[in-house]
Design a protein around this nucleic acid. Sequence first.
DNA 1: GTCTATAGGAAGATAGAC
DNA 2: GTCTATCTTCCTATAGAC
Lengths: 198, 198
Amino acid sequence: MAHVSAEVRRELLVDAAIRVMIRDGVGAATTRAIVGEANMPLGAFHYCFRSKQELLEQVIAAITNTHLDRALEDVTGDGSMEERLLRGVRAYWDHVVRLPEEHRLTYELTQYAARRPGLREVAQRQYATYLAAHTRVLEALADAEHITWSVPEPVLARYFTGLIDGITLLYLNEGDAVTAGASLDLAAQQIASYARSA
Amino acid sequence: MAHVSAEVRRELLVDAAIRVMIRDGVGAATTRAIVGEANMPLGAFHYCFRSKQELLEQVIAAITNTHLDRALEDVTGDGSMEERLLRGVRAYWDHVVRLPEEHRLTYELTQYAARRPGLREVAQRQYATYLAAHTRVLEALADAEHITWSVPEPVLARYFTGLIDGITLLYLNEGDAVTAGASLDLAAQQIASYARSA
DNA sequence: GTCTATAGGAAGATAGAC
DNA sequence: GTCTATCTTCCTATAGAC
């Protein structure tokens, strides 16, 4: 592993940390486990990161970004309001069913972050970002379909975000992907029913 | 602390563990912190519990029970379907706003449990129990009001449970109790709208 | 920068006197 | 049963040779 720049190593370590966390949980992602996963010696850790917390911040940033990049982009395109929402929700759900452990990790990370003074704001910002993303989706839909929402947008955005989050969490812990998918379809229909022609 | 039966000590330690977990998180609830909170010597721990896992199982059982005892019991009584649901949801929400850390602990505990082989089934059972509780609420309402639900009951129960869970989690991490409360009111109206006269 | 070796502390669990 | 002292293991972080 000679002659690999510290910057590249940082990325390799962040990726390795995410793999370990997905496989065994945040608690199992010790510095030893992470450098082991990346095939680096233990000492490499601390000239790439000042501390474990610094790594965690970068892990959270990486996870949040990949999620947002994919966040309900499928509501764009043709079709009625309900069709678009259904398409977006189902694309999200496919991802959850295919990679459940990746989604479990997002919950685990915010929880972990919420308990450490230095990371609490990071957790809060992460959730605020999800809320903002869903708000933007609602705004884009209203714009494209020339409608307004019959419920205040912040309330509807929170309803939407909480619904998706809650049904996902319930599925991760209890199972039954089919019923959960049906509940999400119901959610999309429900949101669509709040559209009023402007 | 002489002459206190091991059985009483077990209860004292479970209560102490819950206090520590609410205050500082599940990760901070070490055997030392727990016996310290209960004003007992370290050695007491292991003649009250075979292991830390045994304590955790009892903590989870205690938390789940206190939550279920209070679960939406307020939907009984007078009023229309929507009034009853609003009453139940608001009673729940009052509790969340008054004791947020207690609710945060339930999420933290299931997550912790979901990662340990010996406790995974406990986490799953906990969520299944919440789902069953909400199903019973829906059934009781349908019965009392002589209606049927226009959506399959398992789907509606999952929708309901996920919605409440998700909005709560979002509030705990992001804040804004007022908007969150409004979203829960919306949830109650929404569920009520699925009633069809039998 | 890169690695080996180790410091320094905290965790769960146990040994053994009383 | 009850408690003190201790064992073992694993953690983050650093020291110091190359």
